[in-house]
Amino acid sequence: MPDNDPSAQILSIDLVDEDATISLATRLCGQLQQGDVVALSGDLGAGKTAFARAFIQALGKIQGTPIDEVPSPTFTIVQIYDELDPPVWHVDLYRLEDRAEAFELGLEEAFEDGITLIEWPDRLADTLPVDHLALTFQMGPTEGTRTALFSGHGTWAKKLTSLEIGT
């Protein structure tokens, strides 16, 4: 599991409500570029899709391409927002069990040309790019609160230290 990577630095951000999630996603989306991979982990209901939605909508807003709908990608596995630059691939591997067939989804293209947000990245095992930013969401002590744990892997171990995401 990436979370056990000794090179990973852990950074913890408390999210008191949905606005905090949106604000975090807004700060992060401006600092990512083509080829970046963000692995989103956490239990069902922990806020992975909510974060991805906030990220995609924030990027759309910044680029003047409003994106009204970011539906859950659970059903279609992959949703591509190619109106954004670079295109954002919102991937949800929840329904996927056989990692050997993940290549059918064409994710290599995403890893090269886009920003990839992957929910349930553990389904990819060793086909997840080594260089990635991992975000793990945990439910907080009270309703609506969450904690986001950032860790950097590969080149992201270093990049994480220069990321401006603090409140």
Binding site: L44, T49, E69, P71, S72, T74, F75
Partner: peptide, 18 residues
Amino acid sequence: GTTLDDAVGEAFDKAAKM
């Protein structure tokens, strides 16, 4: 109108899974 996030059948499936 449409769902802003999960589909209703998806909500059933995920609740069942939990």
